[in-house]
Design a protein around this nucleic acid. Sequence first.
DNA 1: CGGAAGATTGAAGAAACTCAATTTGTGTGG
DNA 2: CCACACAAATTGAGTTTCTTCAATCTTCCG
Lengths: 258, 258
Amino acid sequence: MKTSGFLNDRKMRRMAVTSFEASLRQRCSNCSLREICLPLGLDAEELGKLDDLVKRRRRVFAGQHLFRAGDPLQSLAAVRAGFFKIYEVSAGGHEQITAFPMEGELMGLDAISTDAHRGNAVALEDSEVCEIPFTRLEALLSDLPRLQHQFHKLLSGAIASDHGLMMVLGTMTAELKVAAFLLNLSDRLGARGQPCAIIHLPMSREEIGNYLGLKLETVSRMFSRLRDDGLIATEGRKTEILEHKALRDLCLQGPLRA
Amino acid sequence: MKTSGFLNDRKMRRMAVTSFEASLRQRCSNCSLREICLPLGLDAEELGKLDDLVKRRRRVFAGQHLFRAGDPLQSLAAVRAGFFKIYEVSAGGHEQITAFPMEGELMGLDAISTDAHRGNAVALEDSEVCEIPFTRLEALLSDLPRLQHQFHKLLSGAIASDHGLMMVLGTMTAELKVAAFLLNLSDRLGARGQPCAIIHLPMSREEIGNYLGLKLETVSRMFSRLRDDGLIATEGRKTEILEHKALRDLCLQGPLRA
DNA sequence: CGGAAGATTGAAGAAACTCAATTTGTGTGG
DNA sequence: CCACACAAATTGAGTTTCTTCAATCTTCCG
């Protein structure tokens, strides 16, 4: 579970490249994610007001925490690039990963209820976030009904996707859980216009298992089974979905197999 | 899983009684739940505006649906009295109960993202809800920053409690799941000033199992085990928590037992 | 009181876990 | 660039936990 935040040459080089690209899209107004993120549905004037609020392009290197449980809620964070994991620690000391946020997804929404973060956010790869000071955001929402509505949609969508995970955890066998996990990632990548057949998983088998309520060995076995059945191809953490439809059918029929 | 919505004499008598009581507390302003529900933190004037919005005391008899998946989102509903279950049906036809809302809790929050309900809400006993037309509520939020903030807290709290269930589903054994379930109910009753040592469970073993990712026989066995260990006493669906601290310790140490 | 649904308990089976050995992948330093 | 060391992933064998199937008991209503 531990990851080093050490900055080696490779990481520095990689960040230099992304920072050059990023200079071309400094504002929500022309951000490629504006159709799936908070700005969805805003006009130019409204976008401008939101833009004034957002602190863009804070970098978080692989293994670094963006926030920790107990931290007071200052800002929500939208993933601009990269991949995160959010995990919570129970009173008994058990860790549970509750989400793997990717581009355009907000982190920290569960902190509003107590003004303090409940989850811990760690970058799984070198990443970039946009920070949105929450108090100022709430003030702006009152002025911009469309932004308010979109914010509510994102909050509501977070609940809905949590329910999706509950469905997975509560009703599925190990094989189906892994299949559903891969499809979920693929769908979310597809929704962002990214290639969704070949997925580079930024998380370990252990992290997948933790998320799905399985042990890492079981996850590995299920990857192997799906591979042997010809549904996927694996090459380390790179996973290709060969039979998208068959994989989806597998999830649909669920543990109902005759 | 099926329950009859048949209205027998007993039900009619019961409702007559509650309706008499209810006439004394017709508005949010003097509702006993205002400290845990949407009105928390509002002053008299603000309360009045919210009051004008809310359609109070819609009755839902045991077994009846308040809304179903696919229904367009008209109103959010706050439980005024009674107990509900919310279940979702996956594409593959599997049911998963995602919540057992009780007094002061909002239902339908996950519908905002798609303007249609995803869950199905069924009353587990004769119940009463306050309906809050969502479009009008959102308009009011812009005028009442405190109401807006409280609404966000409730949305955020829903996410947080969903994460709590994920933790249960993902990390706990059958025995701990049942223990955690009982404690959760007890805590929520306690937070409402109700007796929390003796709980009358309005849901069946099957429904508990569905919620916790267990089969009904396993749930029954775990009730028996907790009873044999002296932590609880059971008398049908009436359950008494005898050793509150021991039960909590059990959940804390989790599957870490030596 | 009688029937049906819900709950409990037992015994056998399946699924996932634990422990352990091996292989593969990754990053570091020679 | 290669070899080494360490972490991650895979695979196997045996065990535990939960489920399945089945019988019995209880509770709730009519």
